[in-house]
């Protein structure tokens, strides 16, 4: 088996073995969805959400959570840990470059964000009849660009943070910001307009997810901002990453 494949397999195993990454990274958004949907009022159409149900309106915000938990907290903290504990340094003593370990980490975390998103979509559909994204192509584009932007920011945090502690603190601030602007803490209809506008452009871009879920076309500017963020943060992370 190629060493990259072996690394992906190992990192996936470690991800699933860690109770935190398993419960928070994979399952928490779905648990929140099921919990909220259990409240009958939130399953009734309401004028406040433009005639739709709260649960339908809130599902895209939970996707922000799926992507944010993995990309903004798990990914940078794992990478900082591997650097600080000398795991990357040990890899440097072998014929395989430690960059492959980071690639494996990236792939496993992307997979986790994807699975956790699918769980939310599937659980919403099965348990509460939340419709599937009605503009699937647009939704896929918004999701992929959004995840790209979030993960690139996560990588940049890993590149810049000198210690595990620093990575953890920066990551939690960014995570909370993404959650707040993404309407996870307080639903977006209750937030001031300025906050909602910022949230449109805050990775992973909740508005584009919401629009495409409802069947509309995503805003090109919002998608471009996500793509540009992914490229700029990704390149900076690659340039500035310290192996030791």
């Amino acid at each position: 088996m190629s060493s990259t494949l072996k690394l992906v397999q190992t990192e996936a195993r470690l991800f699933l073995r860690d109770p935190m990454s398993l419960s928070v990274g994979l399952l928490l958004p779905t648990v929140v969805l099921i919990g909220l949907g259990a409240v009958p009022m939130l399953r009734e159409p309401s004028a406040e959400f433009g005639g739709v149900r709260f649960i339908d309106y809130f599902a895209p915000s939970l996707i922000v959570m799926c992507v944010g938990v993995v990309g903004l907290t798990n990914l940078p903290v794992m990478m900082a840990t591997y650097r600080e504990q000398g795991v990357l340094r040990r890899m440097r003593t072998t014929p395989v470059h430690p960059g492959r370990l980071l690639l494996a980490q990236l792939l496993v975390n992307l997979g986790a964000a994807l699975v956790s998103t699918l769980l939310v979509v599937a659980a919403g559909r099965i348990a509460y009849g939340v419709p599937l994204p009605e503009n699937p192509l647009g939704f896929a584009a918004a999701f992929l660009l959004g995840i790209g932007a979030v993960f690139a920011i996560g990588m940049l945090v890993a590149a810049l943070a000198p210690t595990i502690r620093a990575a953890t603190s920066i990551a939690s601030v960014l995570f909370m910001a993404a959650m707040f602007f993404g309407g996870v803490y307080i639903p977006r209809f209750m937030l001031p307009d300025a906050v909602v506008r910022i949230g449109d452009y805050m990775p992973p871009g909740v508005q584009a997810l919401l629009d495409t879920w409802d069947g509309a076309a995503p805003s090109a500017v919002q998608l471009l901002v996500m793509g540009a963020t992914a490229v700029v943060a990704g390149v900076l992370a690659g340039r500035m990453f310290r192996w030791e």
């Binding site: 190992t10 470690l14 000398g86 795991v87 340094r89 040990r90 072998t94 014929p95 395989v96």
Partner: peptide, 26 residues
């Protein structure tokens, strides 16, 4: 090469570590 102060992920098992590192060599 055996380095001073170089750890492995805490949850990686002995057999897995050797299997993984073994895959790096011809």
């Amino acid at each position: 090469i055996q380095l001073q102060e170089s750890r492995l992920p805490d949850r990686l098992r002995v057999g897995e570590a050797l299997d993984l590192y073994g895959s790096f060599y011809k």
